[in-house]
Design a protein around this nucleic acid. Sequence first.
RNA 1: CGGAAAGUAGCACAAUUUGGUAGUGCACUACAUUUGGGAUGUAGGGGUUGCAGGUUCAAAUCCUGUCUUUCCGACCA
Length: 565
Amino acid sequence: MELSRSYFFTLREQAKDEESISGNLLTRAGMIKKSSSGVYMYLPLGYKVLKNIERIVREEMENAGAGELLMPALIQEEVYEKSGRRDAFGHDMFNLEDRFGKRYVLAPTHEELFVEAARMKIKSYKDMPFNIYQIQTKFRDEPRPRYGVIRVREFLMKDAYSFDRDEKGLNDSYNVMYNAYKKIFARLGINCAIVKSDTGAMGGLLSEEFQAVTDIGEDKLVICNECGYAANSEIAKCTLLTNKSDEELKERSLIKTPNAGTIEEVSKLINEDASKFVKTLIYKIDEKFYAVLVKGCHDVNEAKIKKLLKASEVVLASFEEVEEVTGAKVGFAGPIGLDIPVIIDNEVMNMKNFIVGANKTDYHYKDVNLEDFNYLLVDDIRSITKDDKCPKCGKEISFKNGIEVGNTFKLGTKYSESLDLTYLDKDNNLNPVWMGCYGIGLGRCMAACVEQHNDEKGIIWPMEIAPFKVTIVVVNVNDDSQMDAANYLYKELRNNNISTILDDRNERPGVKFNDMDLIGIPIRITVGNKIKDGIVEIKQRTNESFEEISLYDACARVEDIIDGE
RNA sequence: CGGAAAGUAGCACAAUUUGGUAGUGCACUACAUUUGGGAUGUAGGGGUUGCAGGUUCAAAUCCUGUCUUUCCGACCA
């Protein structure tokens, strides 16, 4: 690409409205441009990166034996009604109607259509296993897009689906994809933590996420450096932190706590340690109220409650609803005298003589014990904290943030049963097909890569996905000897199939160096006044220093660098 | 969906409080000088101040409505 005649621009100032490092750098580098909230253009340089990511994903999918196809994005709503997922997705889907009033959605995911496609082939056990995939745009009506192209409403995704006769087959297919994913992210230069996660709206037996570790990730990951345990903190199991207290049970008493609705305020007022408190939160779960009790210093984990009650919606009750249910202002709720079901966290079971709200404004109970009230369920319903130990080996854990760049699901027979995808086995019996599904967010990979590879000057692309591998900076384009040498080298590199930028703009050298650093080209060749001795400079984006080399050896040297020296 | 903020030149902002010719920096055009880390000088071009309505002799500025964007939260495979 000769820059003086190409669509190329950079922004010198910070991009307003782009908070994340990747969103900001990609925008400033002229690679993406926001079209509307959560919808982006991929401009020429950015599109090259995206296509490189696609290429790598395709290569590894083909290596894993998956066949590529292309599904429509426009799908009749009926399709999701049949699978029972119309309501599960709810407001996340974009809806539209055709001229006859027939209802359609823009596909947020494609399990249903892949099942339909699979049905065309699968009749007998001999027709499996196989694996098919596509790279296609998905649409999700995100309530709050953010972080550049990390959380968007229209995005390119690779989704693959495996079809097997039985669970063993599924496990084998899953492992093949799992290993392909490891290879893909290694090639993309993305440092991934692989964590167990919630199966959520997809359902199924097992879900693992490939999380790019960064500072701004939306997901919190729990990682044990000792045994390798890794999980999304949403589902990380909490073990008991304390042993059963051996205190004597005391008599419960009502205490006046005027205007003290938070644990901090009450603990100050009555001079009791915060560890003596039990929080009572009123939740509305599938339109029914529940009281949820956790130790004062812990947070309720709504995903765990959802799973425990097999609920589809878990939300905190509004202030008005809390007052209605407890008869007291928010901050004074407690389990005693409530006529709604009570759910208790395991940790509370080991507490004695604790403090709770009295369901009476400005009053709390102290020296409360489990005998003082009824409860429906006891389970692990809190979020893991930094005081917790690894649920697997009991050693120290650490927390990291992650961007979910890929996920793999063992769906089992969930969709094949609801959509009636069956096959005949050797004994002539009908059985449901065992499915797996495997996704990668391509735009997200691009953003995650920038989040992990940047410095104060800009992006540092890994060699395999860089928009161009080499850039030739001509210090003074008015100097014919420099231009001639640069043109020679440009041709030479291109003849060797090395993607190259020729920065032949009539700009000051500083402008060009800064631009090339910003857009993150891995190898820079500077053609300057040393050309009179036949010398050019090669500098790698990751290095501070450069090497001097003869113009005629430069191309071979570049090939060495690309091949990893 | 709840709370908060912002929309003025291609970009980043000022002028709004106190209504009176819409300005600065970068970018852009021309010429000259300059060419190894975001050059300098001179001369220029570019705006229905998001949109609609209202108040007023007069609105970027005050009022009403509306749209868009961002942030915090809720939500999220």
